[in-house]
Each structure stands twice: as structure tokens, then as C-alpha cells.
Deep mutational scan, measured.
Amino acid sequence: TKKDTKLYCICKTPYDESKFYIGCDRCQNWYHGRCVGILQSEAELIDEYVCPQCQST
């Protein structure tokens, strides 16, 4: 049987260590910077990140 692979981001793909991720400070989920429109250089300046799903609630 195929091992359950945890899926990340709004694009629902397995973790890829070569890509940049940003963690939501509300739901603790991880998102590709590219998918949520945040560059790694911008993320370093953000104190708290809230993902699109949490922003809409």
C-alpha cells in the first residue's frame, strides 16, 4: 500500500525541500511562497504570516 504522504499548501503537493515555504501563524499549515505570493526575502521581514484561508475567516 502507498504510504500516506502529507500534502502541503493550497496546491496540495508533498513537501519539497528545494522549495521555499512559509508557515501560517494561525493554522500552522505550510504554504509555498510562490503559491501565496510571498518572496523569501519578504518573508524574512514579516513578523506574523496569516494564510489566505485564515484571512478569509
Rank of each mutant, 00 (worst) to 15 (best):
C11I: 00
H32P: 00
P14A: 14
C54Y: 00
L7N: 14
Y15L: 09
R34D: 15
V36E: 03
I38A: 04
C24N: 00
Y49D: 02
I38V: 10
Q55A: 12
S56L: 05
E17A: 12
D4N: 10
C35V: 00
L7I: 08
E42S: 07
E44Y: 05
D25P: 07
G23V: 06
D47M: 09
K3S: 14
G23E: 08
K3H: 04
T1H: 06
I10M: 06
V36M: 04
R34V: 15
I46K: 13
Y21P: 02
P52F: 14
T5M: 14
G33I: 14
Y21W: 11
T13K: 12
K6Q: 12
L45Y: 08
S18W: 02
Q55I: 09
S18I: 00
A43Q: 13
K12G: 07
Q53V: 10
E48L: 09
W30N: 08
E44C: 09
N29Q: 15
F20Q: 10
G33S: 07
C35S: 02
K12F: 06
K19W: 02
R26V: 08
A43W: 07
G33D: 06
F20H: 10
V50T: 14
S41Y: 09
E42M: 05
F20T: 13
K19G: 06
I22S: 02
K3G: 09
W30L: 15
K6P: 14
G37P: 00
P14S: 08
Y21Q: 05
Y21C: 05
G37Y: 04
Y15W: 09
C35M: 01
K3L: 10
C35T: 00
V36W: 00
I22T: 04
Y49S: 04
S56N: 15
V50A: 06
E44P: 10
N29W: 05
E48R: 15
C27G: 02
G37W: 02
H32E: 00
Q28K: 15
C51R: 02
C27H: 00
K19Y: 05
I22W: 03
P14T: 07
C54W: 02
Y21H: 07
D4Q: 09
E17G: 15
E44K: 13
Y8I: 08
C35Y: 01
Y49T: 04
C24A: 00
G23N: 09
H32T: 00
S41G: 10
P52T: 11
G33L: 15
V36P: 00
K3Q: 12
T1L: 06
A43H: 14
C11M: 01
P52Q: 12
I46D: 05
R34Y: 10
P52V: 13
S41R: 14
I46M: 12
N29R: 11
G37F: 04
Q55R: 09
Y21A: 14
E44L: 10
Q55E: 14
Q40E: 12
C51L: 01
T1D: 11
K3R: 09
C24D: 02
L39R: 12
R26P: 07
T5H: 12
C27I: 00
L45W: 07
Y31L: 06
P14H: 06
T13P: 02
C9R: 01
A43S: 09
D47I: 06
K19V: 10
V50I: 13
T1V: 08
W30E: 07
Q53M: 09
C51M: 02
L39P: 15
Y21G: 04
Q40P: 07
C51W: 00
